[in-house]
Design a protein around this nucleic acid. Structure first.
Lengths: 138, 138
DNA sequence: TTATTTCACTTGCTATTTGCAAGTAATATA
DNA sequence: TATATTACTTGCAAATAGCAAGTGAAATAA
């Protein structure tokens, strides 16, 4: 598993030690904006993460307290992944990536999200954070 | 050089295609918060980037229009790297990484920056963006 | 004017990480 | 009881990162 090697005590550096790869924040994006919570749902994303990388990242995120893993309510053979407060607090980072990509790169945003962000960034962040908190209870 | 392979049209994904590795945002951090602008200055950071990786990332950042490379004023054998507006617009992302790392990980922040952020995130972002814009003129 | 140093890289090699395809084990459904 | 689904693991090839040494142009020192 991707273990935490801290390169320095700088918060940018240490945050990147945890989140700074090509896949971790996409998993969190799927949880925040798509409401995904299972391995199979993460596999369906259009970016096509490899199975071993997904398993590795989910284990790392769990070990770092960013998400929790529990047996699913409907099936004993499934697991449900839910964001912790530490995970919910990554939402502003993801939103800033959305805004930068939308402004400077060739991307297509979900129009609902775009409208919410245009109406007010902080309100949109608050909405998705409250939403994630509700899901973390069930 | 690290070339841009776009995995999807999602802005989070595409932003990560550009910025989502262990080193790119640290180079931008050094430019924004430390006022660094030369290869030698980037090499001095405590995270110890490898020379070939630094050269690669600077070339990629230039080719993506995030920074510009010009011959230094004082010496013809040196280059000066400066942020473009596209680069200056990454500051909110870096600031969110500072905030998340400070809250959830074992880090040590520059007390000046900490105070500025506590006094108001948007004001602090605005200050560093204005600062970067000034440097980009000279 | 020549010698040495500085600066910004490049090169070559090894180690680590990622990507792909196939396999497995525990349920769940037919 | 047989087939399918789910969440992985395993093995290997390809890509990326890390380390040490080397290079060439320009600046400084003798």
């Amino acid at each position: 598993m991707k273990e935490l090697k801290q390169r320095s005590t700088c918060p940018v550096s240490t945050s990147l030690d945890v989140l700074g790869d090509k896949w971790t924040l996409l998993i969190l994006r799927d949880m925040v904006f798509e409401g995904k919570s299972t391995y199979g749902q993460f596999m369906q994303s259009e970016e096509k993460i490899a199975t071993n990388v997904l398993a590795d990242r989910l284990a790392a995120l769990e070990s770092q307290g960013i998400l929790t893993k529990t047996v699913a309510e409907d099936k004993k053979s499934k697991f449900t992944y839910r964001l912790t407060e530490k995970g919910i607090d990554t939402i502003p980072i993801i939103v800033e990536l959305v805004l930068w990509g939308t402004k400077h790169l060739a991307t297509v945003v979900n129009p609902v999200l775009l409208e919410e962000l245009q109406a007010g960034k902080d309100a949109a962040i608050g909405k998705y954070q409250r939403n994630a908190r509700e899901n973390s209870l069930s």
